[in-house]
Design a protein around this nucleic acid. Structure first.
Length: 573
DNA sequence: GCCGTTTTCGGCCCGACTGTTTTCAGTCG
């Protein structure tokens, strides 16, 4: 039985949800939620920790009782307390909590008076106008419920960062046109460069917030106004993306920006630390009694709290506050640090541009080098190369290298790791390459043991350089394959090979949590675009964002090295 | 249910919007 941290957190959150409908002790519920949030943030695998008999009560927010529950979940896959609780509710009761405006209290009323336990029940009751008569409901809410239950399946969807990005930019550009707005910025998980964005949080400063609110809700892409107040409004855009907009006075810009950037976990941790210092933190500033002592800028906020400035990407309460206190924050990698791209395809396999076109585009970007990594023959669908095609390509690269100045094309391949852990091409040809990128492209459903052994075996190959997209997940499409990441990292470290942070917006693989964990073990990374045409080399920024969220510094990244240094490190293996 | 360099008991982040039950509960972020 292997169960992921996310799944464990999900079970504990479900428990909290049901207890909340039962009006259970609010602080106990909060304790469950705190524990779930911490579990989502832990890099190491809880399942493995339990198997290794690690004392998990050492983890924050996890005491004796929750530890027992986690052990039960890991060993049985279930939580008996939750299973028992579920028996007293209809099976889909938690679905109705996803509807805007229905929380645990109203869910309880719906269930106890009308026995409503699903979207379908709710919809029928709303159509029969039975909802409006209930305590805590009215005609308006009933109407809203009816609308929401139609679109139920879209609720809770998260957008890939790259999808949210143009919407955020367009909206910010619209707001910038308002004369009443002084500053405006997209905050929230978007500013933290999280791989998916649930909603947009926009912050602005103005002397006339009410006027600004009116202007905001008139944005042409708005489909629905959820709420509109004097300083805060919420709308839904045509693509169903929610936007929360907050407008404050100039003097509170830093505090509001900090508050609206989050993460929630980071904010709560800071507010608790403030209480210990006899201070209060809110979106208007830091207060000592009645007196405001900071709030103009985030820098000032952090300084007042005794921290160095924390980059938005780090604000997840994953140790950044402790590091900031001790002045030990990482100096995060920047786009400008990248000197080459080590994963891209050409017309030799499934790419759209020639080797030369890719090289020339890279040169324009100011790169010193690129690696051409077309697919190996195993994958018929992408016209993978066999040995002789690869030799042809090697020759062509040699020729182009002679012609092109100021950029070097490294000879490489994205070779398949076969089910038995061997590579899809023989060593006789792999040894002629400058480096070998290897990846799993099929048999995603192997057991964790088999999948892990498959990759470890592949890494034994003396020419293996970089493990491509290490977990294979596709955001919103495909789960990661099951791999013992902890064991994998140990072997990568021992072998001296490298892990890829794949910058494709759908991959961003390794993710932030794994990247941080691997970095802590001393592993180095290649941040690569896996481009299938020249233009997508620009995706490198998404890889940088993910790497920054994983606390990655320039010194951790092999394609931030000069060509000479890179060759040296590639040959050392 | 968790936590503690003032505490093993007594706290637990903080505030806006909605609708209305004109002082607050419910919900949300």
């Amino acid at each position: 039985m292997t169960i992921s941290n996310i799944e464990i957190a999900g079970i504990i959150n479900q428990l909290a949800d049901l207890l909340e409908i039962q009006s259970y002790n609010a602080f106990k519920i909060r304790a469950y939620r705190n524990a779930a949030r911490e579990i989502e943030n832990i890099a190491s695998d809880l399942s493995q920790m339990v198997k290794d008999k690690v004392d998990i009560t050492e983890l924050p927010a996890i005491g004796e009782h929750i530890a027992q529950k986690i052990i039960e979940i890991v060993t049985t896959g279930k939580l008996s307390k939750l299973e028992d609780l579920k028996k007293s509710f209809p099976p889909h009761i938690l679905d109705i909590l996803k509807i805007e405006g229905i929380g645990p209290k109203r869910a309880k009323v719906l269930y106890e008076t009308l026995h409503i336990g699903s979207f379908e029940d709710l919809r029928k009751a709303a159509l029969a106008h039975k909802i409006r008569e209930l305590d805590g409901f009215d005609e308006k809410l009933e109407k809203k419920i009816l609308e929401k239950t139609v679109l139920a399946k879209k609720i809770g969807k998260r957008f890939m960062y790259s999808v949210a990005e143009p919407h955020a930019k367009a909206l910010v550009a619209y707001l910038e046109k308002s004369r009443d707005i002084l500053k405006v910025l997209a905050a929230g998980s978007f500013r933290r460069r999280k791989e998916t964005v649930g909603d947009l949080d926009i912050i602005a400063t103005s002397k006339n917030p009410v006027v600004v609110m009116k202007y905001f809700v008139k944005y042409p892409d708005v489909k629905e106004i959820v709420s509109q107040g004097d300083t805060r409004s919420t709308v839904i855009l045509n693509n169903d993306m929610q936007v929360d907009f907050r407008c404050v006075q100039e003097e509170s810009y830093g505090a509001a920006l900090h508050y609206f950037t989050g993460s929630k976990s980071h904010n709560i941790a800071i507010r608790k630390m403030a209480i210990d210092k006899g201070l209060k933190v809110n979106e208007y500033g830091i207060f000592k009694g009645e007196q405001k002592i900071a709030g103009l800028s985030e820098e000032e906020m952090y300084k007042t709290m005794g921290f160095s400035y924390i980059e938005p990407e780090l604000r997840e309460n994953r140790g950044e506050l402790e590091a900031a206190k001790e002045g030990k924050l990482p100096h995060l990698i920047d786009l400008e640090d990248i000197r080459g791209d080590l994963h891209m395809h050409t017309t030799y396999s499934d790419g759209q541009n020639s080797i030369k076109e890719m090289a020339e585009f890279a040169k324009k970007r100011g790169y010193e080098y690129i690696a051409i990594t077309d697919h190996s023959k195993h994958l018929a669908i992408v016209h993978g190369m066999d040995e002789s095609r690869l030799r042809e390509q090697i020759e062509e690269i040699d020729k182009i290298n002679e012609i092109l100045d100021d950029i070097t094309i490294l000879k490489s391949i994205e070779v398949d790791i076969l089910e038995d852990g061997s590579l899809a091409l023989p060593d006789t040809v792999l040894k002629e390459l400058d480096m070998v990128v290897a990846g799993v492209h099929d048999k995603f459903n192997l057991s964790s043991e088999k999948q892990t052994q498959r990759i470890l075996k592949a890494m034994e190959n003396p020419y293996f350089s970089i493990l491509a997209h290490p977990t294979g997940r596709l955001i919103n499409e495909r789960e990661a394959y099951k791999v013992d990441m902890n064991l994998l990292f140990k072997e990568v470290k021992k072998r001296g090979c490298f892990l890829e942070i794949n910058a494709q917006p759908k991959r961003l693989d390794l993710n932030d949590i794994y990247a941080k964990s691997a970095k802590e073990m001393g592993i180095k990374f290649a941040i690569s675009t896996d481009s299938h045409n020249k233009v997508s080399m620009q995706y490198i920024k998404y890889g940088i964002f993910q790497a920054r969220r994983g606390w990655i510094e320039k010194k951790d990244v092999i394609n931030a090295l000069s060509l000479r240094e890179l060759k040296k490190i590639l040959n050392k293996k």
